[in-house]
Amino acid sequence: MMRFACCRSDDGPIKPVIGVLCCNEIAERPIQAVATRFVEPLVRYAGATVLLVPAVADAMDTRALAGRLDGLLLTGSRSNVAAARYGKADTADDALDLDRDAVAMELAGRMIEAGRPVFGICRGLQELNVLFGGTLTDALDEGHHGPTDDATAYETLFDHTHDVALAAGGLLAAAIERPEITVTSVHRQGIDRLGEGLRIEAHAVPDGLVEAFSARPCGGDVLAVQWHPEWDVAGRASSRAFFSLIGRALGTYRDR
């Protein structure tokens, strides 16, 4: 029989809670999904507790949720941000997740306005760029930013890498302490016009695509990268530095 310790107070400090946005996927039936690789580094290197956030627009009270989260991570995804979100026309080939767009934009907006830290990886960077009034493009250097074979197996999908140059004086440059790093890159869209108020943190080498940005519009950090730092975190000091930045931002918010 389980014994309960009422009013327990000996478990140490409570960790900050970061929401991690799910995607709408099909596994025989519609499900909410997020890759485990996004969750584990937040626990290990950012010292956070993870709460999965469903991408179900009609079921989400983003105002209530934003008041309870200490931070938010918009993950990568197999879907693209709908072009209608930034004034362009969607194509028949676009893999869309309209509910993900809706929840990401509304929840991230409320979090930022409340001064709470928000982070993005891959699709997450693209969502945040659109939220700040920027646009996206699929006119990328063929084969540079991701594998050209759509049938690439998951086990080898993230073998694709390229170099990025870190902006001097930026958050990433200060944390990583190197002017250039090699990153894991798997994406078919990227930034066209940078959103208003966003500071460039990194460019792709050699084509110059914006690969990371930061901002602090309402007192909380906004930081996003186009690459996949959650892949092989243990083997990449630059990836561990990214998640440590998340942990620092969460801690700064909690300590106010």
Rank of each mutant, 00 (worst) to 15 (best):
M2W: 00
R3G: 07
R3V: 13
A5N: 14
C7Q: 14
S9T: 15
D10I: 09
I14M: 12
K15C: 11
P16M: 04
P16S: 06
V17S: 07
V17W: 04
I18Q: 04
I26C: 01
I26V: 15
A27L: 11
P30V: 15
I31A: 06
A35Q: 07
A35G: 10
F38A: 03
R44C: 04
A48L: 05
A48S: 08
L51F: 15
L52P: 01
V53M: 10
P54F: 04
D58W: 07
A59H: 10
A59E: 14
A64Q: 09
L65Y: 08
A66H: 07
L69A: 04
L72F: 09
L73C: 07
T75R: 01
G76A: 05
S77W: 02
S77T: 07
S79L: 04
N80K: 03
A84Y: 05
K88W: 01
D90W: 03
T91P: 04
A92Y: 02
D94I: 05
D94L: 07
L98F: 04
D101V: 15
A104H: 01
A108M: 08
G109Q: 08
R110E: 15
R110D: 13
M111G: 07
P117R: 04
F119V: 09
F119T: 09
I121W: 02
Q126R: 03
N129R: 11
F132H: 02
T137I: 02
A139C: 06
E142Y: 04
P147H: 09
P147N: 14
D150E: 13
T152M: 09
A153W: 00
T156D: 12
F158N: 12
T161C: 13
T161A: 06
G169I: 06
G169M: 05
G170A: 10
L171K: 03
L172H: 06
L172N: 07
A175I: 05
P179L: 12
E180S: 13
R188G: 15
R188L: 15
G190L: 01
R193N: 08
L194T: 13
E196K: 12
A204E: 01
A204R: 00
V205N: 07
V205G: 02
P206D: 11
D207M: 04
V210N: 00
V210S: 00
R216I: 02
P217A: 03
C218L: 00
G220M: 14
V222K: 01
L223E: 12
V225T: 05
E230I: 00
W231H: 11
R236A: 10
S238T: 09
S239D: 14
F242C: 00
F242H: 01
S244C: 11
S244T: 15
G247N: 09
A249R: 03
G251R: 12
T252I: 05
T252D: 15
R256S: 14
